[in-house]
Simulated assay, not measured.
Amino acid sequence: MGLGWVDALEPDRLTGVVDIGANPIDGEPPYADMLRSGLCTVTGFEPQPSALAQLRREAGPLERYLPLAIGDGHDHELKVTWMNGMTSVLEPDVERLSTLNEFVRYGEVLERTRVATTPLDDVEDLGPLDLLKIDVQGAELMIFAHGRRTLTQAVAVHTEVSFAPLYVDQPLFGDVDAELRAQGFVFHAFAAVKRWPVAPGVLDGEIFAHHHQVIEADAVYVKDFGRLDLLTPDQLKHLSLVAHHVYGSCDLVVRCLARLVDTGEVAPRVLDAYATHLGRALSLDGVRSDT
């Protein structure tokens, strides 16, 4: 695969990425570099026809995109909004939106349509799932709750979480955090944080400047690295690959590699190879050298 430490890791297959809500409206997905390097496969779900068509036009040989709407197995009303990125099965909360500059316009519902949803646990031929990336405008908790069996194989979840509700009865960060922790994940990092100006003030004529209110973020959860004994060798390998290639979390990579070495699953040379790749000196004692 072109990287010494990856060769030493000897994964049996490519890392499996599942992308729910794969609409490319926000630009490249977090796993884009890993995909370009030929280190992962992607199974994406996108029910909006125009977005699905774009994804399929631009897809490479390691990607496939399906028109399913993932949810709880029931039909829902899809609210298509003025801003494509706010389209959701949840109802925009006009009162809440009015507290943020421009958001009432963004959340204006232009069309309502019925959409059938499929639980993640009921998707056939899903393939390997190591990293789940999900962005479904408030429906994340519903999907997690109806995908618990499938998510047992995942080692990382990249999800949008909300701190300021934009929809009626929208689950917030605490709700999502509780569900994922109950499924054996722990919060690892914020990959991105979105701040927005509180309405109605506009300073210096700049409507989108001088903003401090955190409204949402991309949160990264990983399987509990305090209980690596609960993970299979295959999961440890793919957690290492995701942590490095998607998030640059070299400390988490080393913890996983050290566990694999300790259990005899991989040769000790993988640690030297990883240190060489990083161009860093590596020790495993966790003690400062100047103490």
Rank of each mutant, 00 (worst) to 15 (best):
D175I: 05
R181N: 15
D262C: 02
K223P: 03
K194T: 14
A243Q: 12
V198K: 14
D234A: 07
P197R: 03
E206Q: 11
L228D: 04
H188D: 12
A258P: 01
V214E: 01
H244D: 13
V246H: 08
V220P: 01
V155F: 01
E216S: 05
V161H: 11
G174M: 09
R195N: 05
D251L: 12
W196Q: 13
P171G: 01
A178R: 15
L203W: 07
V222P: 00
V242I: 15
H158G: 00
E216Y: 12
G226T: 10
E160C: 07
D177L: 09
F187H: 13
A164N: 02
L228G: 03
D218N: 03
D262A: 14
R227N: 01
V202M: 03
A209L: 05
H245E: 14
H211K: 10
V186E: 14
V220M: 07
V261R: 13
R227L: 10
F163V: 09
V242Y: 02
R195H: 15
V168H: 10
V161I: 15
V186D: 12
D229Y: 03
H238L: 02
A243M: 12
E216M: 12
D169P: 07
H245S: 11
D175S: 11
V157L: 06
D262T: 13
V246S: 01
G184Y: 14
A199S: 15
H238K: 09
V168W: 09
D204Q: 14
D175N: 05
V186N: 07
A192H: 12
V161R: 10
P165C: 15
V198M: 13
L151M: 10
R227Q: 12
R181A: 15
E216N: 07
H212C: 04
H212D: 09
D204M: 04
G174D: 14
D175F: 01
G184K: 06
F208V: 06
T232H: 01
T159F: 07
V220R: 06
C250M: 05
V193G: 01
C256L: 12
H188Q: 15
A192S: 08
V155P: 03
F190D: 02
P165Q: 13
R195K: 12
S249Y: 09
L172N: 02
F163W: 08
P165S: 14
H238R: 12
A156P: 02
E206C: 11
L231P: 08
A209F: 09
S249N: 13
D224Q: 04
T159S: 15
G248R: 06
A164Y: 13
G147L: 02
V246G: 06
V198A: 12
R181H: 14
A189W: 00
A258K: 11
G205D: 02
D169L: 06
H238F: 08
Q153M: 01
V254C: 04
H188S: 15
G147M: 04
L241A: 11
V220K: 00
A154F: 02
D251T: 02
D234F: 04
W196P: 08
E216V: 00
V161L: 07
V161N: 08
F225C: 00
V176E: 13
H212G: 14
V186P: 04
D218P: 00
L230P: 00
A217W: 09
V254D: 11
R227V: 12
V168A: 10
A192E: 06
H210A: 07
F185T: 13
D218F: 00
V253H: 05
Y247S: 15
G205I: 06
Q170K: 04
V168C: 08
